[in-house]
Simulated scan of single mutants.
Amino acid sequence: MFGSSADDERTGPSDRHPARGNHRSAGLRALNDSIDRIDDSATTAPDVRAAAEELLVRKLRSRSLSASEARLILRGVDQDGARLDAGTVDDIIDEFTRRGYLDDAQLAGQLVAAGIERKGQGRVALSRALAQRGIPREVIDAALDELPDDDAERALEYARSKARSLSRLDADTALRRLVGQLARRGYNGGIAMSAAKTALAEATFGRPASGVRFVDSD
């Protein structure tokens, strides 16, 4: 489910996304043709629904959106004082979802992959990041369930990448800082502490006897 991904702050569009030029469906071609013909004066068009759909396609061309984010955009459309009613907003969301332009499950997968590969995040941080994008709880849980149960391994990999830069500090300060960094990335206390101790011990291995050594007191 998880391959390489773009930055989670600018998650790339899927193959079914309006930004993909190689999508050949008649519906998408019609949408794109409509958008390509409009200019800045389109915002003064009398049809508020058409203007709202055009705006949403423009947004989707540059960044994937969750259904919740798309809904907020649509609710904010004001066309000469006219706004979309709730039923019309729902209709547009349903239509864009049916066409595959909005796909919370796919977006969740992209964000999880990006969080792991680019930021070394654990499950807690990943869950929080997806929730902040308005992805439903059940979709978040399904995306996280696809992950192997290797938080400890990912935490250790991240800790190893940071341990050497902390080697100039005294043992307690280095351990505290590294545990804090791991905690901020969503690793629980036990995993963060174990990974930090292991990584710092590895970073100091081979130093002269007077060097700092990290010994697990357990």
Rank of each mutant, 00 (worst) to 15 (best):
124 V>H: 04
85 D>Y: 07
84 L>M: 01
118 R>E: 12
118 R>P: 02
32 N>Q: 13
84 L>Q: 07
35 I>F: 14
155 A>R: 10
87 G>Q: 08
25 S>A: 14
28 L>A: 05
34 S>H: 12
104 D>Q: 09
161 S>V: 07
137 R>D: 06
107 L>K: 02
57 V>L: 14
20 R>L: 07
55 L>D: 00
102 L>K: 09
49 R>Y: 03
89 V>T: 11
50 A>M: 05
144 L>S: 13
145 D>Y: 06
31 L>G: 00
98 R>E: 14
157 E>I: 12
132 Q>S: 03
84 L>G: 01
105 A>C: 01
158 Y>P: 05
110 Q>F: 03
65 L>F: 06
136 P>S: 07
113 A>Y: 11
102 L>S: 01
95 E>S: 14
52 A>F: 02
52 A>L: 13
78 D>H: 11
85 D>N: 15
111 L>E: 11
133 R>F: 02
128 R>M: 02
113 A>R: 13
82 A>V: 13
35 I>T: 13
42 A>F: 10
156 L>H: 14
41 S>P: 02
47 D>P: 00
54 E>S: 15
16 R>D: 07
86 A>K: 12
95 E>R: 14
74 L>S: 03
113 A>T: 08
144 L>Y: 13
129 A>Q: 13
73 I>K: 15
69 E>W: 12
13 P>Q: 06
81 G>E: 04
68 S>C: 09
60 L>K: 03
88 T>N: 04
110 Q>D: 15
